[in-house]
Structures are given as structure tokens and as C-alpha cells.
Design a protein around this nucleic acid. Structure first.
Lengths: 198, 198, 198, 198
DNA sequence: TATGAATGAGCATTCATTCAT
DNA sequence: CATGAATGAATGCTCATTCAT
């Protein structure tokens, strides 16, 4: 099933991802990518229209499983609180396991002129959508406070998790994921749980 | 007092900032910067050692007032809760008023090879430090829960605010700052306030 | 009789001719040729040694009938004047019916480094030879003036016809061939007919 | 008056012209041009948008004097016959003195996709216009036959001259210009002069 | 203090050709 | 007889930097 083309593309994806995470898109040359992938330069242009399109294809290919994972995470959870916790954990795990990809996403997400801008933004929107659904469910069920905007809170929690995750991986990678998840859980659950406020 | 040299540098700073925010550091050429600044190409190299050094100087010049503002914000607040709220508001205001700069910071922060990497990271560290101090004060005073790590929570709140701010500016810039600040205040205050947890 | 090989070659000839007429030899890629011909890239190299050799074979294949037509035209004419007129008409007809080929000939004729340069020049020489023979016959018969060089006049008339034909096809293709032929006949016959000069 | 820029551009024009006449536009590399011109590669792109634009500028720059020469030639002539003869002679002289340029014109004129296509065609049109005016004057004056189309005859004579000139330069460059001019004069003057026809 | 023509190493991309199937 | 994935030398172009004025 894995054709020769697929194998070659995969080698290119891996090489490009590792290099771009380290040096950025503009800082990575096609020469470096093909050298790392072990193919000739022309091969990139046989399979893709150009360097940017290679990255676009890479993003599309690697992002589908991520979205799928989030979808399943949300479906598996019984309560809104559990769903939120599971989503945070899934996000942390994915960032930990796809560090290169996460870093690339962080640095390329806000660059508006890139051709994969739309792909990236729709991903972001769809992921935050899962958080939003969990929060909206919690509000409807009365377990989450009703004076917050679900969409706003979703984006805020997502950003909190990303920031914490990157801090974690850069400054104290030896900390177990559970500890990080627990810290975020405490902050996040309190932030949205209904009850007495300040 | 404003010498001709200062005027020229300022024009270069403004031009570079606007362009880099839009297209990134690597995507912005010296030609574009000097054209927008209305000076000749050689002028950049008369005032700075190179393109990177121009940006480094720009960052250093624009960062001092930011830190100063945070310092004063923290000093002016009476209670830890008020301090946290004021810091969030200061962060939001700054991002709103320095949108280009914020965007540049977001995209360049994680690029390790850049010469201003250290400057940027120490800025981040210092800003988060203000949040951390407010949270630690609150924990010590018993108004904030003691089962969270002040440093961790500080970074998380900072990231939550940045993410919300960028979402705000990109997707719904017409929303008043007060509304955004209030949403974050609700999430943040609950997150750290001591009381019953989920 | 038409083997599969012949069919494939013919498809390649047609595709190559159309593209080269429009974009020139250097401006046409093998990829474009095979796409238009509907065959795979390797097929070109199965049948020909390379791109240049494909064009060389194409020229050789399409040129034989042209020369044959000129030979028969000359033989069929009774008088030198009629011969000249018939040659002009044959040239016009061929250019009209082989527009792509004519255009390719025009642009490639003066490119000395090409491998088919000799083929093309000998063709040109042979065609002009037919004109020359008709003019020389006319001079010998006393119906054409004797103060012109037959070879020179042949080349001049040939060039006049080509130029007029291309102008015709490019700028006023709706004009009937007869009108064009008649105009050239008037200019040409006067040019060579013996009588009083200016 | 000759600025540094002008000097550099001129060196590039000379180098490009010589090389393109020999090897064609597509066959000439920018590297070859700059090496022959004795400047660095970037210089081409400092002064022109690209290789094609360099050639476009070259054509525009070298064509103005040619048109001017034709205009003066036509004005200086007393009679239509003399005008025609002078135009033919001017064309021959120019082709002889600008052999590289002529050859480039011949091979690039029919390539429709080039950016200088319009420039080249309007030149052609303007030059043929001078022939046309002379012929039309002769017809009006009764010295040229009235059964030919002035525009058609102009194009035909122009083409006849070009073809003869290139034949001359390629196959018998030792022939004096006067001999060639005289041959063409005989053919051309007879072709258009009013009198008994075949 | 400022200019802008010139530089050249580095880059993305093209494309005729090869070859295993 | 035909394919199409792979190749890599060659090419047009970019752009940070230099320097004479």
C-alpha cells in the first residue's frame, strides 16, 4: 500500500519538519531538506509545486490525526469537567509528542502571507471548537458558570495550555506530564466552575 | 534634543516594525525597510551593524517603557487581586497599542538562533515575574489558593491573556477592551482564588 | 501498416510542432510535449535520443513532401512566368497549411548551434533552387531581363513571398489566398520581366 | 552626462546583444552576460527587473536611432523612386552595421510570448510605414503603378531586402554593399514602376 | 551624516535525461 | 513498447552587505 511516492514524500515530510522546527521556514533551505531526506533536489519539485507547498502538504497530512484524536477524546468523556480535563491532557500529550510540529505551528501561525495560513487557522478554530463545546455543555448543565462566553473561555484555556506546555518543555522538561496537567486542571476547572466568585 | 541621527533611526524603527509584524523578520528585506522609511539603503549600515542589529536596537528601545509600565502597575495596586487585574489590563492595553510589536514578539520569541533571543526571553521572564509576585503575594495573604505553583500560574495567566488578546484583535477588534478584560478577570480570578475546587 | 510505434511518434510530432511554433524550441519542455501527446515522459527517450533528435526527425519527416510538391510544381509549368507564379502560389499554400511548421522554420533557421541547422539550410537552398531555375530559364528564353542575377533574384522573391505570407496570416488572415498571390504575382513578374527600367 | 549607471547599462547591452545574436535569448545565460560585461551578477538585477527586461530595454534603446535614420532618409529624398532606393540602402547598411541586432530581431520577432513582442512589432510597423509612404507617394504621382496595394508592397519590399541582406552577409559577405543595393534596386523599382506588365 | 551603485554568495526552481519496472 | 519516479547540473533571481562619493 505504501507506494514509492508515499515513501519519498514521508521522508521529505520528516526532514522538513525537523529542520523547520529548528530554524523556521525561511531559515531552512531545500538543499538541507533533501540532504536530510536522502533524496535529490529535483524530487521535491517532482512531488510538490515548491517548498511552501511541501510544507502545506505536510501540515495537512499531520493534522488530520490530531483532529481525530481530539474528536475521540471529547466523545469518550462523560462529564463536561472530565471532557475539559481530557482535552487539556490530549493537547499536552500532543505538544510533547510533536514538539517540532508545535514549535513550527507557534512561529508560523501568525504569518499571514503564507499559503497554509488558512489551513492553520481552520485547524486552530476546529480545536478550540472542541473546548468550546465542552464548556458550552458545562454551562448548559449548570456545572459551569453562566457569566462567561464559551468561545472566549475556550480560546483562553487553549492558549493557557499551549503557553504552559511550551514553558514546560523549554524550561523544565523533566517535570512529569501529570504534574503539568494537574496544575492546569486546577486553574482551568476553577476558572469555569460555577460557585462564589471574587 | 532629537538629533538628525535620532530622527533617522526612529524612521527606520517604525518602518522595520510595521513590515516585520506583517511579514516576519526573514520575510522583510532591507530594501523594503529603507523604502518605507524614506532613506537610502546605506543609511541602515551607517547606523547599525546590520539588519539584525537594527531589530535588536528596536526591541531594546521599545521594551524599556513596557517594563516600566508593568512595574508601576504592580506598585500602584493595593491588593493581590487588584494587582492581577491591573496587570492583565496593562498587558491587554499594551498589546492593543503595540499590535505590530506584539505580533513580532509572538513569531520571533521561539526562534532560537536570533541574536535578540536572550533579550526577548528575559523580557518574557521579567513580565511573568510581575504576575508571579502578585500571585505569590495573594497566596501568602491567604486570598489565593495555596495548591498552585505561583510561577506556573503566572505563566499560564500570561499566556491566557496573550492568546485572548490576539484572538480579540484578529477576530473581533470592535469588542471594547473592557469587555475582554472583564472576561479574563472572571476566568483568572476564579482560577486562583481560594475556595472549593472541582 | 501504421505500427503502434508510428502512432506514438506521430502524436509526439504533432504535439512538439504545435508547442514549438508557439513557444520556440528552447521554450518548450519535454513535459509539455508528452502531456499534449498523451504519453509518458520516458516514451520520448524510448523513441528518440533526446529532445533535439525528436525535432530533427520531425523536420525530416515533414520536409520530404514539401520538396516533392515544389518539384512537381516546377515540372508542371509550361513557361518560366507560369513556373514562377506557380512556385509562389505553392509556397503560399504550404505556409498557410503548415503555419506551425513555417513559424518554427523562421525562428530556428538562423540558430546556428542547432543540430538540424544543416537540414534546414539545405532545404532552403533547394527551394530557392527551384525559383532560380525558373528565373534562369526565363532569362535564357529572353522573357526575363538579363541584368539580374538569377540566384540573387530567387532568394529575393522567396523572401518576399515568405514575408508577405506571414504578414498575411498574422495581420489579415481573412484575405483570400488568391488576392495575396495576385499581389505578389504583379510585383514579382514586373521585377523580373524584361523591358524598360526606372 | 554619462553617469555610472549609464556606463554599466551600456556594458550590459553590448554583452547581451553579442551573446543573444550568437546563441539566442534562451540560450544565453545571465552568468555569461555579466562575465562578458565585466560586472557582477547582481548588477543586472539592480538595473533591470530581469533578463527579459534587460533585452527589452536594449531593444528600445537601440531602436530609436534606427527609426530616426529612416525618418531622415525619407525626408531627404526628392522623388518616390529615390526615396525607395534610399530606404533599401539604409536598411542594408543598418543590417550590415548591426548584424547581431538584426539576427536577434529575425529570431525573436515571431516569438509571441516575449515581453518585447509589442516593441518589436511596432518597430516593424513603423519601418514598413516609411516604405509604404514612399510607395503611396509614387502611386499618387503616377510614377508607380496603381494596381498594387501600397501597404502590401511595402511589406514585400521590406522582406525582400531583409532576406537578401541576410543571404548576403551569411553566404557572400565579400560582395560590396553597392552591388547588393543595385540588384535590389533593379528588382524593386521594376516591381512598382508603372508601365507594361506581364 | 547620508547616499545608491555594485557586489556575490546563496537560494528556489527548472528540465533534459536516466532507469528500474 | 511504455512508464513515471528520481536525478542533479544548470539557471534566474534575491538580498544583506560594502564602499566610493
Amino acid at each position: 500500500m505504501a507506494t514509492r511516492s508515499d515513501t519519498t514524500k514521508c521522508k521529505l515530510y520528516d526532514a522538513a519538519l525537523a529542520l523547520i522546527a529548528e530554524k523556521g521556514f525561511a531559515g531552512t533551505t531545500v538543499d538541507e531538506i533533501v540532504e536530510r531526506a536522502g533524496v535529490a533536489k529535483g524530487t521535491v519539485y517532482y512531488h510538490f509545486a515548491g517548498k511552501a507547498e511541501l510544507v502545506e502538504a505536510l501540515i495537512a497530512e499531520r493534522l488530520t490525526p490530531l483532529q481525530e484524536q481530539f474528536r475521540m477524546t471529547l466523545e469518550a468523556a462523560c462529564t463536561p469537567s472530565a471532557a475539559l480535563e481530557a482535552l487539556v491532557r490530549a493537547e499536552l500529550e500532543w505538544i510533547r509528542d510533536n514538539r517540532s510540529f508545535s514549535k513550527m505551528l507557534m512561529t508560523e501561525l501568525w504569518r499571514e502571507e503564507r499559503i497554509w495560513h488558512d489551513t492553520l487557522f481552520s485547524l486552530r478554530h476546529s480545536i478550540i471548537g472542541y473546548f468550546e463545546r465542552a464548556i458550552a455543555d458545562g454551562i448548559a448543565a449548570g456545572v459551569f458558570r453562566s457569566d462567561i462566553d464559551a468561545a472566549f473561555a475556550a480560546s483562553a484555556l487553549f492558549g493557557m495550555t499551549v503557553t504552559s506546555a511550551l514553558d514546560w518543555l523549554v524550561f523544565s522538561p523533566e517535570t512529569p506530564l501529570d504534574t503539568v496537567a494537574e496544575q492546569i486542571r486546577r486553574l482551568a476547572s476553577m476558572a469555569v466552575t460555577s460557585g462564589s466568585a471574587a
